[in-house]
Nucleic acid binder design. Structure first.
Length: 253
RNA sequence: AUCUCCUC
């Protein structure tokens, strides 16, 4: 076995990215044990430690001296590194290059395409580009990419962060109609942001949709909605929702 | 064997 590869993988899997860095170069230069997956781990390790330019360098080296063709997952991790460094335009461009790729093994790798879409949407969220996030989600079908629960949740995050709570509600309704159940935490994040932006009525509608879809509702959810209504100065609805909460069987937190 | 959102 190649020890640098073993040590690098071990530290990587333990998410000890900083400690894994010193072994990265030796692991990559192992002729026998370096493969595409190890390169993907290396790129992600550099991304996790905010070494974005170095991550891009390894990505480019894969096609040259490392001689391991980048696969769908490689694209996904590099798009994520671009996302975290605020390079949303490059992230979207790389995602588009996958969609338009003449290589069917890339386009037909559905999990990697979805993950890349999600990283691209996340890039938009991080950079405050909610319009672009929404556009990526809207054209996913046309692009032949399957949008999943994370695609919808991330788009909602981008929208509510920008105060576009009614837009997020529309995404939420579509998500429910597609039978993609958002997690409790994702719902609560949306509701918390509704209260930050004083969108009480919208928060109330979210709660209604959640109830109809039989999603879990906790005290965090009700707290956020009531706070939102209070900040929007809807005293009657504050009281009505508070009374409703006392009658409703809340899920434990 | 590798990736992506989320309550402060």
């Amino acid at each position: 076995e190649s020890l640098p590869c073993v040590v690098f993988r071990t530290l990587y899997k333990a998410k000890r990215y900083e400690e894994a860095l010193p072994y990265l170069e030796d692991a990559l230069s192992s002729k026998k044990y370096c493969n595409t997956i190890l390169c993907n781990m290396a790129i992600n390790c550099l991304g996790k430690t905010k070494r974005w330019d170095e991550a891009v360098v390894v990505f480019e080296r894969m096609s040259t001296d490392l001689a391991h063709a980048p696969d769908g997952m490689t694209h996904s991790v590099i798009i994520n590194a671009l996302a975290l460094s605020g390079r949303w335009e490059e992230a979207i461009a790389l995602f588009d290059s996958m969609v338009k790729s003449s290589d069917p093994t890339l386009r037909e790798n559905s999990p990697a395409m979805t993950s890349s879409l999600n990283s691209a949407i996340n890039a938009c969220d991080i950079s405050g580009r909610w319009q672009d996030a929404l556009e990526l989600l809207r054209r996913a079908d046309r692009d032949g990419v399957k949008a999943d629960m994370i695609s919808f949740s991330t788009t909602m995050n981008a929208l509510v962060r920008a105060g576009k709570c009614d837009g997020a509600l529309a995404v939420f309704r579509e998500m429910i109609s597609r039978k993609l159940e958002p997690g409790l935490v994702a719902c609560n994040f949306v509701l918390t942001n509704c209260s930050k932006h004083k969108k009480g009525e919208v928060a109330l509608e979210f709660l209604e949709v959640m109830r109809k879809a039989k999603l879990k509702i906790t005290s965090v959810s009700y707290n956020a909605v009531i706070t939102a209504l209070y900040r929007e100065e809807k005293p009657e609805k504050v009281l009505a929702t508070f009374r409703e909460m006392q009658l409703y069987r809340l899920c434990p937190d």
